[in-house]
Design a protein around this nucleic acid. Structure first.
Lengths: 227, 227
DNA sequence: AAAATTTGTTAGAAGACTCTAACATATTAG
DNA sequence: CTAATATGTTAGAGTCTTCTAACAAATTTT
């Protein structure tokens, strides 16, 4: 028997649009068609027609030539997909021994599994983690999320001691780069100096007395103050 | 970024056709178009065109108006999907606390995840199980499977002591029925009597001194001799 | 063997998701 | 403010998977 989705459910494709829209909406309300096509690697007309479709399903707000945004229903649907994604990532790392740089691709596929029981069970087995392996918060069963108040390392000054709490993005390349510098979540860091010319920072942490990171990298290292 | 399958890989739909064909091929070589449409709950013309497609991909052998069969390539591809399915079922039961009647639906979706690393990791964490929660053998990484030599309980005579080793099929209803009779894999069973009229059997096992099962049920209980 | 039934095939169409080409509107630069 | 650029829309088409209706071949029944 070919297992087919219940027709009141979003297709995998629709779920991917919602999720992308949700990510792009962080920190702002409205999103361009073009931003969405870039994020999904799909043409503008394709997004245009999908957006019309999602509008008829009450998942997005949209008027011709205007930017779009998620409705409350769409926001919740997206948050629940993100929940599945992040619980999966955490489960793969915590319970199955994967590295934080390996889990995104797998979670991209697993997040579309419909059984919420599977994900609630992961949640339970991990004792209800608050964040995923990259420090991003995990939405609860109702799609509510606690926005983290972490700040980019680049905002701090010399002498400041901080703890790495989350990442601004988690591309495989970035994660491998952090692995190569032995930098992981929870690591305490001290800012030794800042190069005024390009904003790069010299940091000290654990076994590493003096590691230099570009400003771009430091903007993606989200930290909290220590001491 | 919309995650798309590599184009040399079978689509989820194609995978479902291969898997169905594989299941229907157990104990015989050739399969009818109609059997396949019934198994997949899809019309004959749909199967017909998909079979042509799978033929061009070298996965099935087929001539107009003749029955079909898997090529070696198709057989292996199918076995690897079955591997993913059965490892997932076992993992859900062994490592995540699901009941054997809950795991089929979830595994139907998970089996299409492309990462073989995920499934090899499950395999490792379970210490390489040979069978799934319903006693069906798990194909190895090369798609090879050890055909089980278990026989249906219905073939044995009064007085015989056997051990429940596997199930002929594992529909949710059947599994719930077995749960209600406290019958699980590994249980030792003695045949107390057989009703000549309808072939139903009275069995004794564990706490149950005398439970009656229809012939149909006994044909789906695969056992090995004990003592 | 002819008739009835079952099984398989072809043709044509529809829905979901995608594209390119061409056109329309909005925004930015001069 | 007009021109240039960026962004958004429409039209038309293609692939994948599915369907129904109509027909063809094979099998079974009588």
């Amino acid at each position: 028997m070919l297992s087919q989705r219940r027709k009141d459910m979003a297709s995998q494709t629709e779920e991917n649009y919602l999720k992308a829209l949700y990510s792009l909406s962080v920190g702002k309300i409205e999103v361009n068609i073009s931003e969405l096509s870039a994020a999904l690697n799909v043409s503008n007309p394709t997004v245009n027609s999908m957006v019309k479709n999602l509008k008829t399903k009450g998942l997005v707000k949209y008027e011709k030539y205007k930017p779009l945004s998620l409705t409350e229903k769409g926001r919740k649907a997206a948050a629940l997909i993100v929940r599945k994604h992040r619980l999966t990532e955490m489960f793969l790392v915590e319970k199955m021994g994967f590295g934080w740089e390996e889990v995104h691709e797998i979670a991209e596929q697993l997040e579309h599994v419909s059984s919420s029981k599977l994900f609630d069970r992961m949640d339970e087995l991990m004792d209800f983690p608050l964040v995923d392996p990259h420090g991003s918060p995990i939405p609860d069963r109702n799609g509510n999320i606690s926005e983290s108040a972490y700040e980019p390392l680049s905002k701090f000054s010399v002498g400041r001691k901080v703890k790495l709490a989350a990442l601004g993005h988690s591309s495989t390349e970035f994660l491998k780069f952090l692995n190569s510098r032995e930098l992981s979540l929870g690591t305490e860091i001290e800012i030794k100096s800042i190069e005024p010319y390009d904003g790069s920072m010299v940091l000290s942490y654990q076994n590493r007395a003096s590691e230099t990171f570009t400003q771009a990298v430091c903007e993606s290292l989200l930290v909290e103050r220590v001491g």
